[in-house]
Design a protein around this nucleic acid. Structure first.
Lengths: 147, 147
DNA sequence: CAAAAAAGGTATGTATACATATTTTTTTAT
DNA sequence: ATAAAAAAATATGTATACATACCTTTTTTG
């Protein structure tokens, strides 16, 4: 087993843990949202009437995935979708009242669970970790803006 | 947008970058392996005749996912699967000659791309990052051995 | 302005990723 | 030794995740 100490393996495990903490805490709070769905709600809330391609860019996903995510948010009545009058290719997505409610309910839970993900690190270590992560992401975006 | 600085979001982006670098470099090298498939080959190579549940535990996946991964490795002729004589529930998985070859071809590529993922960090920062990641994973495994 | 390029969305296909249920087989407990 | 519990696979269902192709609409360009 040569892979245990590799960056790729460790990062995948971190993401696995992060996702697990997220779903556990949301479930406990009685909130039916995945982390992508929450991120999408967050983007839509910031820019009401946003189109799907912009949501995808903002939260770093591809259009196809976001299409499916918005489908499910629409099914749950958290967002509404309508064809834009300015650009008939685009769908304008907006939070419903239920969407605002679930977002307000979820936000404190989501904020609280962030430190839980990094449990095991001290405050200063957490800060350093997040800084290294940010730097890594920036470096890779510079190299490959499409990724 | 409240999510940009959150641990969960940054970790997902890291994983996205990591996966992207992995597939790009493997593709360039003419190797048809995903990161999970490589991890599985690595585990099988370490313990020839290993069963799927043990593979899953070693590389931190669930059995259902690994079942599909082994299916695809078998289709590509990189592994062989047979019912264990000691335990007829279990499938003994072993690398084929082609599997050994592709592993040998892939390993240097995989090793080389690890630092590329963390480009943007200095050597000492890379080391610190990997240490923080390891610590985080350990802390979460202690809290939740099943995760 | 008409052809070409680009952009938004959807469709399709592949590969995770994991929860839950089911089947088969083995192990444990009485 | 037998019923019960546990374990290994597989099956099923849901949700990413992303590449590629396609359709429609808009923008750009000659």
């Amino acid at each position: 087993m040569q892979i245990y100490g590799m960056a790729g393996h460790l990062i995948r495990r971190l993401n696995q843990i992060s996702t697990h903490v997220f779903s556990t805490r949301m479930m406990e709070a009685g909130i039916d949202l995945t982390s992508v769905q929450f991120a999408a709600l967050d983007a839509i809330r910031t820019r009401p009437g946003i189109d799907q391609a912009t949501i995808a860019t903002m939260i770093a996903y591809d259009r196809a995935t976001i299409g499916g995510v918005i489908d499910r948010l629409e099914q749950k009545k958290y967002v509404t979708r309508s064809i834009s009058k300015r650009d008939r290719r685009a769908r304008e997505v907006t939070l419903s009242a239920e969407g605002e409610n679930i977002y307000a309910k979820a936000l404190p839970v989501v904020v609280a669970l962030q430190n839980e993900i990094l449990r095991g690190l001290s405050s200063s270590e957490r800060e350093a970790f997040l800084e290294f992560a940010t730097k890594t992401i920036e470096a890779n975006s510079d190299e490959n803006p499409s990724a």
